[in-house]
Amino acid sequence: MLSSSAKLKAINKATNKCTSIRGEMPKDLFRWHPTCHHNKVMEYASQFVALEERPSHMALLYVWGHSYEFEDEGNLDLLDRLGETIAVKQSIWYATNAEIVSYVQALKRLRFSADCRITRT
């Protein structure tokens, strides 16, 4: 049986072919569903950029695919079009799976005082 830390290390490199159009940050890192395959990214990119920014509810546009598919399908231009679409919003963070896992774990470790200041443990 794998330890929790071993499972988290595996998650950093794992992919999942189920899709989720909610654009939410993963609540369960072991059941992390992408927004879409790269072939459908332009259907979601504009919606993602249009989302209202709320610090209490971060959104995630999680695109999956394989590098060889771009050449096989002749659609490498999708990456350029995606970049042009989401570049208009300065607050978007471009991150790897490992960076998002680390960030989510750090958020869970935050502790606040009664007056909402972050406290050190």
Rank of each mutant, 00 (worst) to 15 (best):
S91L: 02
H33M: 13
H38M: 11
D80W: 06
L110R: 11
A45N: 08
G83V: 00
E43Y: 04
S20H: 04
E71N: 08
G74A: 07
T15M: 09
A95Q: 11
T35Y: 05
H38W: 08
T96R: 00
E71M: 11
G23H: 01
C18Y: 06
G65V: 01
D77G: 04
I118F: 12
E99P: 07
A45I: 04
N16W: 00
M42I: 09
N75K: 03
I100G: 12
H38C: 10
D77R: 07
V49C: 09
T19E: 10
D72E: 12
C18F: 02
F48K: 05
V88F: 04
Q105A: 05
S67C: 02
K89Y: 05
H66K: 05
Q90P: 05
I11N: 05
S67W: 08
K89I: 02
Q90F: 00
L51Y: 06
H37W: 09
A98Q: 11
L110Q: 11
H66G: 00
L8Y: 03
C36Q: 05
I11H: 04
K27W: 02
A10Q: 13
D77E: 10
M58S: 14
S5C: 06
M1Q: 11
D72G: 01
D28G: 05
Q47I: 12
S56M: 10
C36M: 08
D115Y: 02
H57Q: 13
Y94C: 10
F30G: 13
A14I: 01
Y68V: 10
L60Y: 13
V101D: 13
A106W: 07
R117I: 02
L61R: 11
H57C: 14
L60D: 14
S20G: 03
F70L: 12
I118V: 15
W64K: 04
E73D: 14
S4L: 06
L79W: 09
V63R: 07
C36L: 07
L60F: 12
L110G: 04
H66E: 01
N16F: 03
G23A: 02
N39Y: 12
V101M: 06
D115E: 02
F70H: 02
L107R: 15
Q105Y: 01
N16K: 05
P55A: 06
A106C: 08
C116W: 09
T121S: 11
W64M: 01
L61Q: 12
K40Q: 12
Y44R: 02
R54K: 14
H38S: 10
N97F: 10
S91Q: 07
L107W: 14
K27C: 07
N12A: 13
Q105H: 03
L110V: 13
V88I: 08
Y62G: 00
S46N: 07
A87I: 08
E43L: 10
S3I: 11
D80T: 08
L51S: 15
R81Y: 01
V88S: 08
L79Y: 11
G65K: 00
E71L: 10
S67K: 09
E53T: 13
N39C: 11
I100F: 10
F48D: 11
S5P: 01
T85C: 12
S20C: 08
I86C: 04
E24C: 09
V63A: 06
Y62K: 00
D28V: 07
A59F: 06
F30I: 13
P34C: 09
A45Y: 10
H38N: 09
A14H: 03
F112A: 14
I118L: 15
F112D: 14
E24Q: 08
